[in-house]
Design a protein around this nucleic acid. Structure first.
Lengths: 333, 333
DNA sequence: TATGTCTACTAGAACGATCTATACGAACTT
DNA sequence: AAGTTCGTATAGATCGTTCTAGTAGACATA
């Protein structure tokens, strides 16, 4: 049913009565063809429905103008990042090759597929690969780690300053008058350690007692953590991320507490659902899309040989919504 | 910093003291090499860190063993489908090439990228392309439309029976004793029309009055719809999807109604968050992952020429959780 | 001894593009 | 009139594989 073979340069050349090389020139829109023939060739190409075979093109030219991005199907916010990456890559004339880490598919597998495809650089989103593995990839092509730091000398990293994020969070709540602030941590999640210690340090810096409650990365764990909150009678919680915050909100709601009058809840990530009208979760934003664009630009700069490995750390900012207020404040309507 | 050129067949051949062709035979693990040389070649390849260049391989062999999948970064459930598709493709020795439709990136753009890459078949998830466009693609390679029907003669489709899904939903609620059931529809979303008319027909079949309230595809629209519910004093709602159901739940909660005693709420999609402990949303499941596997197998069968275009319609099933019960039932604990 | 059939291997032509080198006029110098 | 330059066009090599056709040697058969 399908046309057994797609048209090639040769077919177009014959149709237009010129050589293959000239058609190539026209298709790449390089110098060396007159306006008249250019038009004739384009016309023939359009009539045949010709599209250059990118594999052949890549093979010969060496340049693929392809950026490999590995992401996870289980992290919703990766989608937002991929979205932004497409935009940034498009601006510089690059295409993205996506490879997902999925159920039966490891990050190594995903990355190696990208390598086999001839990507000129790799962008790994919240990678969990060991530094030796990363270095091995970096020996082949430039590698940019997005939202994961401490990645070795040879690998670029674009991440968000977790310490600053936590500082902003603590200062926001302390500024509202809170004294008993609890951190529900991220358990074994990627940047959980960093945020936990940052929390301890910031709190002690302000002369407050840092209470940490074990949490995780999902709503379920937020609910569990919500139940453990009472012990220290806090007036505010900083959650590891928005999903955990959502669980905490639910747990408080079930316990008959109202937010923010009985308890302020602050999320992290400023994810899509934090913005929903009925959630209105105050949250620390890492500006994922901005970081994604930055990562893409690094990757391209490295691929084009105009840069050496570097690390960039973005500063998060606070997005205040309805779940944080002065302790005991009247319920927002 | 990066090795300027990766090793090729030639390099391995020289290192092992054999011809390129023989190395090729070993790498593909085809017949025609002795066990001894086979081992010698593999050793040399490993030492050099050789990986076959998939572009060159594809170019020459014609076969890419590549399935193109287009998905949207803005639909969370596409991730689940991609996940399942990877597994199914892996079983048959195929790789997936992903191309996202994102902010500045149309579905045409995404699909054409996949075509340029030499995919042997295309799987389009909830495509919004016109049938002429689909047919044009189908002239090049087999195309399978996933979760979108009415797609023309030349295109395969794997979808879910919306009519059956709605029937199951209506029967579930009617079986529990509900008489006044409302459907909050999907507005302009893909299968909204189908579900709406199915609802009307099923309700009248049971001698019940079919009340439809305008909705949409997101939580926000669910909240709005929730406010419009009171007019007809229903005891149960069938939402267009889980996100809308979540909005309805929220709206009911704000109005002081309790679920399911005052109102039963039924979602559609059985999405990830419907399963969360604090949501426990009853929902009609389309078995997305199962359909995905089916789509992959169709695509491969078509690509290998062992099948002609066909349409398959999966039957959804009901997943009962905590948000549906007999009218006036005691609140579940 | 001649013939055939294996197995293990190789040379060289593809695949569809790009790139380098070169040819051919026409126009412009000198 | 001969030499130079320029714009346009082409032949043929090349990228890293796979594939076809064929060779060389071992061994068995007639």
């Amino acid at each position: 049913m399908t046309d057994s073979k797609r048209p090639t340069l040769m077919d177009v050349a014959q149709a237009a009565g010129v050589s293959r090389a000239l058609v190539s020139i026209v298709m790449r829109d390089a110098a060396g063809a007159s306006a008249a023939t250019r038009e004739r060739v384009l016309e023939a190409a359009a009539k045949l429905g010709y599209r250059p075979d990118s594999r052949a093109r890549m093979l010969r030219s060496g340049r693929t103008r392809l950026l490999g991005v590995s992401f996870s199907t289980s992290h919703a916010f990766h989608a937002e990042i991929v979205d932004a990456a497409y935009a940034a890559a498009g601006l510089r004339g690059y295409e993205l090759a996506l490879s997902a880490v999925a159920s039966g598919r490891s990050e190594e597998r995903a990355a190696e597929a990208l390598l086999d495809w001839g990507c000129e650089a790799l962008i790994l989103i919240s990678s969990t690969l060991g530094n030796e593995t990363l270095a091995a990839y970096a020996r082949r092509v430039p590698v940019v780690s997005l939202l994961r730091e401490d990645v070795g000398e040879t690998v670029d990293s674009v991440s968000s300053d977790d310490r600053a994020g936590i500082r902003i969070a603590v200062e926001h709540l302390a500024g509202l008058g809170h004294r008993r602030i609890v951190h529900v941590d991220g358990g074994t999640a990627v940047s959980a350690d960093r945020r936990r210690t940052a929390f301890r340090e910031e709190m002690t810096r302000l002369g407050l007692e840092p209470v940490v409650v074990p949490g995780g990365a999902t709503e379920e764990e937020g609910i569990l953590a919500g139940g453990l909150l009472g012990a220290s009678t806090p007036t505010a919680v900083i959650a590891f991320n928005d999903r955990v915050a959502l669980g905490i909100l639910e747990s408080l709601r079930n316990g008959g507490k109202s937010v923010p009058s009985d308890m302020s809840v602050l999320g992290y990530d400023n994810s899509h659902f934090a913005r929903l009208s009925y959630v209105q979760l105050s949250s620390v934003s890492q500006d994922g899309p901005v970081l994604a664009a930055e990562a893409v630009n690094r990757a391209i700069d490295r691929a084009e040989g105009t840069a050496t490995p570097s690390r960039m750390v973005g500063t998060p900012h606070l997005v205040g919504r309805r779940t944080t207020a002065a302790p005991g404040a009247a319920v927002a309507t």
